[in-house]
Design a protein around this nucleic acid. Structure first.
Lengths: 359, 359
DNA sequence: AATTAGCACTCAGAAGGTGAGAGTGCCAAC
DNA sequence: GTTGGCACTCTCACCTTCTGAGTGCTAATT
């Protein structure tokens, strides 16, 4: 059965109202909203049919109607109007980006914080795993027993580690090691760093003390970390303000699910579209999310950095507002990350330096 | 008025019971516990006096008694028996340490997670701000427009940043810059890096393109970050399982207070003792913590890395158990951090390397 | 044929009333 | 100093009642 235009209007009205009140919506309030010039009786009939069709649900006879997941789905796909950001909101987002080019993980959690405070829902920020390789490797000699290993990865992130040895090494060896490493260990994937490769490198630079092993371990560790992806959750406590999570048990279930970050890493892979993705209630695989919805936006910069920023809330969620905000954030993030190599960064640093001198 | 031994015993019994049940304790249950060979009437009289003395409180006439903050204070200071860890608990802690020597911030949040899961309360991990200086500075030349700045701080942490320039620089300049930096910028505090110093360094290496400024900005930024301290909160959702936080508003208040990490950084400075510190209810300065208690343990390693690990819970908290666990964790952490320069780290890396080869 | 007014019916939740039980304070007896 | 006993208090759980929002259906109206 086709869903008539009038039904659509009514469904939209029901959902809009339910989103703001969190209370079952009755036929009368729709009639009085002035959206349609119909009596409550007519609307009642329509709502009854929408219920039969599965777009609405009734908590109990003689209560108003509540949108079903199917209803939300239609709403999200076709009915809701794409909301635009207010100037203030856009500005808040831009300012937060302007801050500085922090380390990636800081940036991520900062962006999560932003999304959460803007939407008033808990936010998750995921860095998608990227199969990186080492593009450059250096050892900095500190003293006989100590040096710093620095690895730059193909995704332009730089990692370091201070290494102490139980014996001392001469600077020449460090130099040699560094160059052997740069020829043998760059551009290859983590699992290509095999004992065979390591021992051949050991021979190449005459290392008998396991120095190569230490450096290789660092390389493997670094690549492993980059390939893992990370999840940050921010603003989980906001759940408690929502009427659907007044029950501490429900709130606890969802919050502890969210804070075991491992779980969330399951989300990313699905979905391709460049746009927002909405998962409504039972569309979520995880049992803990069955009564909640998730709105996700993907961002990516130059194929190397990919990530997801998302918001978790009750199925009754302000989808259109949340989507608009996430979309804006994700776009900004994509832009920021792909222009990181442009002059802007430099200018900013200089300006920052100037400020410091003043106080 | 002196508090008699018998009163002490009764107070202890009341608190012990209240800690486990979270319900006001009546004279009868104390009498029946068999701890004292007294009738409930006598205990009633004693409890009445304890109430007058301010160690106990009565939610309303004809309810049992509840310990007051003053009562908890006495309990923590004198009455509770120092609990020892079970073998399993000690083992869990040790295993978690064994993991690996992660980057400091990862380690911290990991330790917070550990404390939280062990105590079943939310945990906070603070890295105390340390006035660090740069002990070594290097620039790694990547290509004309790109190099990596690496700074090792006096607290042995190493930081890096990838710097892109809008113009190209020759390797010689990078070299010169690096050595000028090492002589002029090491061993000094953040606020000593003044425009005067910068321009003199610029002259010293013939830099006309602001390269020194960029590097100095990185240095300042790095020192600033190190001197800020960071706070991680883990397991906040556990609050919701406690009867005193069944009220979502209360839970929300505390949780959002905790998650605005800035607040917590206020905690550290007070208190000197090397041992556990307990802040009971109103002893906390922050209004949001007035109904909660905080147990803190300090750890430090070689004067350079200092931190706090703590647990937040209701005033009715298993102080003795929590204290024992925190003490153990803090000791382990101190040990781990100060032996980081010892051979162990090296051995572990080698072993790890071996494992990798096998699969 | 679609819409509407009207009406009986349903049901959750608020309001109020009652009783049980846990606990107290105090007194008189031991 | 300790105890048994007793009257008293107060919360909480439970029940009942009542109210009102909302429904579904039918008959009248457009």
């Amino acid at each position: 059965m086709e869903i008539s235009d009038r039904k659509r209007t009514i469904l939209t009205a029901v959902i809009d109202e339910y989103i703001t009140t969190a209370e079952p919506v009755g036929s009368r309030s729709i009639a009085e909203s002035g959206l349609l010039d119909l009596s409550s009786a007519t609307i009642r009939n329509e709502m009854a049919e929408l219920t039969v069709m599965g777009y609405l649900e009734q908590p109990h006879t003689s209560a108003g109607r509540v949108p079903s997941p199917k209803g939300y789905r239609l709403y999200v796909n076709e009915l809701m109007d794409r909301q635009r950001l207010s100037l203030e909101e856009a500005q808040a987002i831009n300012e937060s980006f302007d801050l500085k080019m922090k380390k990636l993980d800081k940036l991520m959690s900062e962006v999560g914080r932003l999304a959460s405070s803007l939407t008033q829902y808990p936010a998750v920020a995921l860095a998608a795993p990227v199969a990186a390789t080492i593009s450059r490797f250096d050892l900095i000699y500190v003293d006989g027993n100590t040096f710093i290993a620095v690895a730059m990865l193909s995704n332009s992130s730089v990692h370091n580690k201070l290494i102490h040895l139980p014996f001392s090494v001469d600077p020449g060896m460090v130099q040699r090691l560094s160059s052997v490493f740069n020829t043998n260990f760059t551009g290859i994937a983590e699992d290509k760093i095999t004992p065979v490769l390591i021992s051949s490198a050991e021979r190449a630079c005459g290392d008998t003390m396991g120095l190569v092993s230490v450096a290789a371990a660092f390389a493997i560790d670094t690549l492993g970390k980059a390939g893992q992806g990370e999840a940050y959750v921010t603003g989980a406590s906001r759940l408690l303000r929502l009427p659907e999570f007044r029950d501490p048990d429900k709130a606890h279930e969802l919050m502890s699910y969210l804070s075991e970050n491992g779980h969330l890493l399951g989300l990313p892979e699905s979905g391709e579209s460049d746009d927002i993705q909405v998962l409504i209630g039972p569309e979520n695989v995880a049992r803990e999310l069955k009564d909640s919805s998730v709105v996700l936006a993907r961002y990516n910069a130059g194929d190397n950095i990919k990530g997801i920023i998302g918001v978790v809330g009750p199925t009754r969620m302000d989808y259109s507002g949340v989507a608009a905000k996430l979309r804006y954030i994700a776009e900004g993030l994509s832009r920021l990350l792909s222009t990181q190599e442009a002059p802007r960064g430099f200018e900013k640093l200089q300006i920052k330096e100037m400020n410091i001198g003043e106080h």
